[in-house]
């Protein structure tokens, strides 16, 4: 564990807590893409298959349970909570996310570290996480007003994988085995997808104006 990875995990934890806070306290999921939440639940379900077979550390297991629990409960809130689901804008959240899942699964079947079920599922989760934010970014561009909590959620979610890149660089120079190239290429692609969001997020923060993405 290094400071970059810890910072990344804490940023990731903060992003899910911000989203849970928004949905649980103000009972609203306005501006939140259910499609992205469903993709993230699938990412964690396919990445943490080893949660029962490979014990790494208490921290690792607890964080996996938090990410699994929070992502599935957020999907439940938006789909089934009698108040929250009314604020879900399904007419705007129209990204066909199965068009993301299928290519990721095909790619994982061809490009992976070794051809086992767990490994292909883990690789699929890396590819899927790289593109999981797309429905959310598309929704943000459609809904003109982005409330602070949603903006902060997306910012933290993008920042966490950016911090992981520093973690992979650090591990490359300090450990005998380095993190597999599939992991960090997917992580770099994922972070690059947030590039324009980061730009507009910092612009709005610097000029102290409401965050608005260009149409």
């Amino acid at each position: 564990m290094n400071i970059f990875r810890l910072a990344g995990d804490m940023t990731h934890l903060a992003s899910v807590l911000v989203l849970l806070l928004k949905i649980h306290t103000i009972k609203s999921c306005a501006g939140v893409s259910l499609k992205t939440q469903e993709l993230y639940a699938l990412v964690f379900a396919t990445r943490y298959l080893d949660i029962v077979t490979d014990f790494i550390s208490v921290y690792n297991t607890v964080m996996k349970l938090i990410f699994l629990g929070s992502s599935f409960s957020i999907v439940w809130y938006i789909r089934h909570h009698r108040v929250v689901r009314r604020s879900y804008d399904k007419d705007q959240d129209t990204f066909r996310h199965y068009l993301l899942m299928i290519p990721c699964m095909l790619l994982a079947l061809f490009v992976h570290e070794k051809f086992t079920f767990k490994e292909v599922m883990w690789t699929f989760s890396l590819y899927l996480e790289a593109v999981a934010i797309l429905p959310q970014l598309v929704l943000l561009q459609r809904t003109r007003n982005i409330d602070n909590l949603t903006g902060q959620y997306v910012f933290l979610l993008g920042a966490y994988r950016g911090l992981y890149i520093f973690n992979w660089i650090y591990r490359y120079f300090t450990e005998p085995h380095f993190v597999h190239w599939i992991t960090w290429i997917a992580g770099v692609v994922q972070t690059l997808l947030y590039a324009d969001f980061f730009y507009y997020y910092f612009e709005s923060w610097k000029n102290n104006v409401r965050l608005q993405l260009p149409a």
């Binding site: 990875r5 995990d9 990731h12 080893d50 490979d54 790494i56 690792n60 964080m63 996996k64 990410f67 570290e113 883990w122 992981y164 973690n167 591990r171 085995h177 380095f178 993190v179 597999h180 992991t183």
Partner: peptide
Amino acid sequence: MEHSSGKDEL
């Protein structure tokens, strides 16, 4: 057991 690289991460 030496974890294969990256699997000890979240």
